[in-house]
């Protein structure tokens, strides 16, 4: 399998299926490839398995019993199932639907949480540097630089989500996985996160799950459309929105269902 992998792609999915035990697969034989420095949107009606697919890339399903993942996923040409799960999760950073800053840690501590959790010791100067750089990357530095010692939970929802992105970026991941990162946010915060994603594209590769078609159109280069666990269509976003190949994609994009 390994020698068939094209290392030009940063992420390759091969026949990935996820089952919650019994019944239909939540994700069924999805194959796709993602090139570096792109934004890939995963769209589809709720319950189509888009979040489940994203979480499989982070190997989060292993935390729960009764969830089995089959097929193979390659990160920079290496199968993630042959890597240490902790390594996988560090290389593929995850941003969740609802902002989840650690309530017991300060803003400063939250940005450095990855280092602390991974037992990587840093000097004070290194810490300050990582915190400032990461917070600047998410355009949060100016807003919080005077209250780094405060708890992260005091921030607004949008700020919290940017803090969570900073927390993920601090570990310098190869890939950024975002699971509907703006679904819990107001329009203004959403716009700021979208701007941020476009900026981050220069340095990172992003896969983002969204139920918002216009968001996908605004920020993504490529799009996947999933329906009932299957990958129906995958291609450049522009093409998908203007000339969808599949009837189901067209129905979804025109609002006939979902």
């Amino acid at each position: 399998m390994e020698n068939t992998v094209n290392t030009d792609y940063i992420l390759e999915l091969k026949d990935v299926s996820v089952s919650y035990g019994g019944g239909r697969n939540a994700v069924d034989k999805v194959s796709a490839s993602v090139s570096p420095n792109t934004v890939t949107a995963i769209m589809g009606p709720s319950g189509c398995g888009k979040s489940t697919l994203l979480r499989a890339i982070n190997r989060l399903h292993e935390l729960y019993r009764d969830i089995t993942t089959t097929g193979d996923i390659f990160l920079k040409g290496q199968s993630i199932f042959r890597m240490n799960p902790m390594m996988v999760r560090r290389l593929a950073g995850m941003v969740f639907q609802r902002p989840n800053p650690f309530p017991t840690m300060s803003i400063y501590g939250n940005v450095l949480a990855g280092y602390r959790l991974n037992n990587i010791p840093l000097s004070k100067a290194e810490k300050d540097c990582v915190v400032e750089k990461s917070l600047r990357e998410v355009n949060l530095w100016d807003e919080v630089k005077d209250s780094l010692g405060k708890k992260g939970t005091f921030l607004s929802g949008g700020q919290q989500q940017r803090l969570c992105i900073a927390r993920t970026l601090a570990l310098r991941p190869e890939l950024l996985l975002m699971d509907e990162p703006t679904s819990a946010l107001d329009p203004i915060s959403t716009a700021r996160i979208e701007e941020l994603i476009l900026e981050l594209k220069k340095e990172y590769t992003i896969v983002i799950v969204t139920h918002n078609m216009s968001q996908a159109a605004r920020i993504s280069c490529n799009s996947m459309f999933m329906y009932l666990g299957e990958l129906i269509e995958f291609g450049p976003t522009k093409q998908m929105f203007t000339k969808p190949k599949d009837k189901r994609t067209e129905d979804y994009l025109t609002g006939s269902f979902g």
Partner: peptide
């Protein structure tokens, strides 16, 4: 030594 204590194998 640092690298060892932060190594995934050791932590697992």
């Amino acid at each position: 030594k640092k690298a060892f204590f932060a190594s995934p194998a050791y932590r697992s």
